[in-house]
Simulated assay, not measured.
Amino acid sequence: MPKEWKVGELAKLAGLTIRTLRYYDQIGLFSPSGHSVAGYRLYGESDLSRLQQILSLKELGLSLEEIKSVLAGDQLSLFDIVSLQMERLKENIRVQQKLLSELENVSGRMQRNEPFTVEQFAEIMRVMRLNHEKFFAERKSSWDLHLDRLGEYLDDNPEEPDKEEK
């Protein structure tokens, strides 16, 4: 018998939020292959394969609309996808190397007790901002996951109605 997962189970398995999976369903990117009698979304093994494709393309930096288009028309070849990933990694390495170079420059100036120009300070801040954008996006995703889990808990454990005071 094929395995099926509810939306919360699939979210946990894939490291996504329930909100993300519901949004993907809403925009027609990733819909469940079935529903339970109670109306819960049910995802099967074939759905996992599609979700893996979506996440891989998203990791490459494609927008959700681009991913939808690729999956509908298979517009990118495997070579194109690998090439995009290589370019993305090269860009990440370039940003990290630039940040390292700027920090080494700062360290050297500090050791020599040399002052910083406004332009040098601005450049360091710009490079650091680029480096930290990914970190903050990952933190937001983590918070979304925690909020979804809290929402699930509250849905599963509603408060008892207030008892009348005597």
Score class of each variant (00 low, 15 high):
L71H: 12
P32F: 05
V95F: 07
E91L: 14
N92T: 13
L150T: 05
F116T: 12
Q85S: 11
E133C: 06
S142C: 12
L62E: 08
F121P: 00
G44Q: 15
D47F: 07
D162F: 07
F136Y: 15
V7N: 02
K140S: 04
K166D: 13
K134R: 13
L145V: 04
L29A: 11
M86F: 08
V70K: 03
F116I: 11
A11W: 06
L147V: 04
A137E: 06
L48H: 07
L10P: 05
L64F: 14
Q111W: 05
E45Q: 15
A122D: 11
V118M: 00
T17F: 00
I93W: 06
D47P: 08
L60H: 04
S49H: 09
V37L: 10
W5L: 13
L154F: 01
H146A: 03
Q53T: 00
E160C: 09
F135S: 11
R41Y: 09
E114N: 03
I18A: 08
E119Y: 00
G151W: 02
V82Q: 04
F121M: 07
L21W: 01
T117C: 06
L145W: 02
N92Q: 15
A38F: 03
L29P: 05
E133S: 13
V118F: 00
S69Y: 07
K134T: 09
G15E: 03
